[in-house]
Simulated scan of single mutants.
Amino acid sequence: MSWKSRLDIDALTAIDVHTHVHRSVRARSGEGLDEMLESMSDYFGSGGVTGHTVPEIAAYYRERRMAAVVFGVDSAADSDEMVPTNEEVAELATEHADVLIPFASIDPARGASGVRAARRLIEDYGVQGFKFHPNTMGFYPNDRVAYPLYEVIAEYGLIALFHTGQTGVGAGTPGGGGIRLKYSNPMYVDDVAVDFPDMKIILAHPSFPWQDEALSVATHKPSVYIDLSGWSPKYFPPQLVQYANSLLRHKVLFGSDYPVITPERWMSDFEKINIKPEVRPLILKENAVKLFGLETGGVGTSGGEATP
C-alpha cells in the first residue's frame, strides 16, 4: 500500500519537517547506535536520547496535534542495509498517515542499485522525498555520482533534503568519528539547484558556520528552502531571524531534529525570539503545507507517476 496523506491540515498546530527514526520494530538496530545516540545526546544537551520506532513517533506527534516527516539515514559504508529500512519507514508511515509523511534515504555510493531502489520506493511505497547527509555519506552534494538519484527525485516532483552545517554525529569523539564537516557547506547545493531547477530542495538546519551561504542560496534559487531543525531557536544567528521575517518568510520551515531536540523545547524557545506574529504560522505550518502540496494529498502526484 502506497502512502497517501490523511492529514487534517486545519487540526494540526504544526508540521515538523525533520525527525529521525532510529529503531526498527522488525530488526535489531546495528551495533554502535546506542553509542552514537549517547554522544549526540551529550552534544545537544538532550539527556538520555534512546531513539524511537515509527509507531512511537506517530503516537508522540498525534498527542501534540502535529505532523512529522520521518526518515532514517543510509550509509553504504556502515552496512549493507540500513535499519530500519526505507521500506519499513514508508510502510509504517502509511499506517499512520494521519500524522506522518515518509521520506527515504539512499547513499549515492550505492550507484545503480540505489537509483532502482529510489524509483521503487516512490512508485510502490509513495515516499515524498529523500534525505541526504553528506557528512556521514562522505560526498559533496554537487558530485556527479549523486546526479542519477536527483534525476529520479526531480522526475517525480519530490523533495531532496540535505543536511548542512556542523553535525552532532561524531561530535566529541576522537577524530569526530571520521566525519568530515567540509561536505556540508550549503554552497555545494547551489550547483544542484542550478542543474535541477525544478527539484524542491530543503537545506536542513541553521548552517553553522556557513549561515550566510545558506541564506544566499535560498534567496537566489526559487526551489531552495531552509528548515530550522537541530538548533534551539534561542541560538539562531541574527541574520537567520532577519531573513525569516522578511525575504525568506515563505521559505523557512519548522523542524526539530527529534528526538535530539523535542518540539516542546523548540517551541518554547521559538516563542521567545523576535519573529513577527504574521510569520509564525508560516514557519510552523503554512509553508510546509504549500511546499509538500498537502492541499492536494502530497508532493508530486503521490500515486507513483512521474510529473509530466
Rank of each mutant, 00 (worst) to 15 (best):
S302K: 10
T94Q: 08
K234W: 04
K200P: 11
A59D: 12
S79Q: 11
R110T: 04
L33C: 05
P263H: 04
I153Q: 08
D198I: 02
G32T: 14
E271N: 10
S75N: 14
L37P: 03
S75F: 11
K290S: 11
A112S: 12
W231E: 03
E56R: 09
A306R: 15
P84Y: 05
T13F: 10
L37Y: 09
G30H: 15
T50C: 09
V169Q: 05
F139W: 03
I179S: 00
V189N: 06
Q242C: 05
S75I: 08
E151R: 14
D190I: 01
L291T: 11
H163Y: 02
E295P: 04
G47I: 09
I179T: 03
V145N: 04
Q211S: 07
G298A: 10
H18S: 04
H52Q: 12
S268F: 15
I226L: 01
G293E: 12
K200M: 15
E81F: 00
H96A: 11
K221T: 05
V192D: 00
T307D: 14
L291S: 08
Y183I: 09
P277T: 01
L158P: 01
R119V: 11
L158A: 06
R249I: 12
S41E: 12
Q166N: 14
V69L: 10
L215N: 00
P197Y: 14
V192L: 10
Q166T: 15
E38P: 15
V83I: 15
V54Y: 06
T301A: 09
M1I: 11
T53L: 04
K182W: 08
P102E: 07
I275Q: 05
K234T: 12
M199L: 14
R180G: 03
Y156P: 02
P186D: 03
D34N: 05
G176T: 00
F139D: 00
G45M: 10
F103K: 04
V252G: 03
L158V: 06
S113E: 14
A58K: 00
D198C: 07
D195A: 13
S113M: 10
L248V: 13
D227T: 15
L203H: 07
A59L: 00
V279C: 14
W210S: 01
W266T: 01
I122Y: 02
Y60E: 13
A118V: 02
